[in-house]
Computed example of a mutant assay.
Amino acid sequence: MNIRPLEKKDLPHIYQQKNSRSVMALWFEEPYNSFDELSILYDRHVLDQTERRFVIEKDGVFAGVVELMEINTIHRHAEIQIIIDKKFQGHGLAQAGMRAGIEYGFNVLNLHKIYLYVDVENAAAVHIYKKIGFVEEGCLKDHFFAEGQYHDSYMMGLFADDFRGKIAVPVKAD
């Protein structure tokens, strides 16, 4: 698995994701964007310092996206989101992609905290996030509207020190 910055050449893959109701429901976003609209959004946001978007590749093939959004340099926190294409799900890419995005946020952007929102009924995602070290900070009742109904959402957070402690490799004494 490899991550790299999102580029304009990736827009056809993003277009497929953005036009899937089931995928966008997981992000609590409205589906169905035209390709022209997506291109305009890309051009508008490519230099936005409050966002970082990365492509997740498996053997050089587009497999998904991990994004750091709402990057706040004063309070040193950001929201993280991930989407893995259906054909690549179940191969550990969600966890690896999240870890790569988190490491970038903590080690490059010097963030203190990374948070996310997840549907309380998305047990697979909640399991992955807890495995990485995210903890539930609260439950937001009827917070997002998707697929014709309101959804409760967990807000989960992860602090840099906790993440570093979880993945720290012990140094062997000589």
Rank of each mutant, 00 (worst) to 15 (best):
N72T: 08
I114W: 07
H112T: 11
A78Y: 03
M156G: 02
A96L: 06
I14W: 09
V55C: 08
F54R: 00
E57W: 07
R4N: 05
V66M: 00
E29M: 14
A100Y: 04
F54V: 06
A25V: 04
H75E: 14
I132F: 02
Q149W: 12
A125T: 04
G60W: 01
V61C: 08
H13K: 14
E136Y: 09
D174H: 13
V61M: 11
F145Q: 11
F144L: 03
A25K: 08
V61H: 09
Y150N: 14
M24I: 06
R76L: 06
D119G: 10
I102F: 05
D174Y: 14
R53Y: 03
K9I: 08
I71T: 07
D43G: 14
V46L: 13
Q17P: 01
S20H: 05
F163S: 04
E147R: 05
M155T: 12
E57H: 04
G105I: 03
I3C: 00
L11W: 10
F62Y: 15
F159Q: 10
F35S: 10
H91M: 15
Y129L: 05
V126W: 04
E57G: 00
G90Y: 04
Y15R: 02
K86R: 14
P170D: 09
K172F: 11
H77K: 12
N107V: 10
H77N: 12
E137T: 04
N107L: 13
Q49K: 13
L47T: 09
I167L: 05
E51Y: 08
H77F: 15
F62P: 02
D119P: 12
A146Y: 00
I80L: 01
D162C: 01
K58I: 01
A124L: 03
G97M: 06
G64D: 02
P170S: 12
D36K: 15
H127N: 12
A78L: 06
K172W: 06
I40Y: 11
Q95D: 03
D10I: 07
F62I: 05
